[in-house]
Amino acid sequence: MHKPFTHHQAAHCETGVISNLLRHHGLDISEPMAFGLASGLTFAYLKMVKINGLPLMAYRMPPRMIIKFLSWRIKGMKIRFHTFRSESEGMKALDDKLAQNKVVGLQTSVFFLPYFPRDMRFHFNAHNLLVYGKEENEYKISDPVFSHLVKTDAESLKQARFSRGALAPKGMMYYPEKIPATIDFETLIPKAIRFTCRMNGRWNPIPLAGIHGMKMIARQIEKLKKADQRYARLFLGHIVRMQEEIGTGGAGFRFMYAAFLQEAGEKLNCRTLSEAAIEMTRVGDEWREFAVLAARMSKQRGDQDFSDIAAQLRKVAKMELAIYDQLSGYKGN
């Protein structure tokens, strides 16, 4: 059974990979649907984790969690994960799977992938991609964030798979073992929405996640007045990079979640969700506005100051909270 692989461009690597992979195996699930069902939307401010001296901000669940959540939640779906101690063993296992005409997902480091634009290659160890074939010494890759298919040589791929450091992939490869023919959307969608809204809304006791995390960053931004101005500019730039650059579909996944709410509304024939989708799009627009302000400030253009930016972030948090409050008890139609 050999089926030609169709590539769909996606906004984010992990959701794009899983959606392309499941579509290839005959389960039609779009990228936003995969993101929503896995309750991927979140916000977290992790002061302890530093990247180039700046604290980590996350707009989604930690890497791998989207695929794991999907395989826990969807009945009859099983995804097999493998990691390897030895590099040659890992490459051999990949070749074996490709020889069986399987499409395989890999966790890699962006830095070692030669087809990425030079200035976008950073040491980010949790980039997902699909390998769908091998030609002599070149692997044929479907990288969901690219509009076209790409190729890479075996040596680079090996380096990317076995890069070291935080979130080291250890050659992680995965492929579906069992895939159900259908998904029970009536129970899964409400469950996933309730989870997201409780986790990010007022019920979350952890002060650095969800809307509390946004408020915390707003306070941090106000404090930047007294900080070193170079640090202040980098800090603001860093927030915007986390929100836009790392393949989020715009506005730190908010637009993608809105697309999920819209699709869910159509599937369940529910007005509440369709309206929430429109509201979520507005939240996304406000996030983009926040990014514009922060980017201008970091470039020292315009006349806004830190309290304007903090106020904008608080406004976003308030709007998001309204959606979370409305849907945190969502039971479906």
Binding site: Q9, A259, S298
Partner: peptide
């Protein structure tokens, strides 16, 4: 809502350049 292509955004490229 549907997927659309973007060739780049000024806010994003500014901060990436800064980094």
């Amino acid at each position: 809502l549907e997927i659309a292509q973007t060739a780049g955004w000024e806010a994003e490229s500014t901060v990436l350049e800064l980094a």
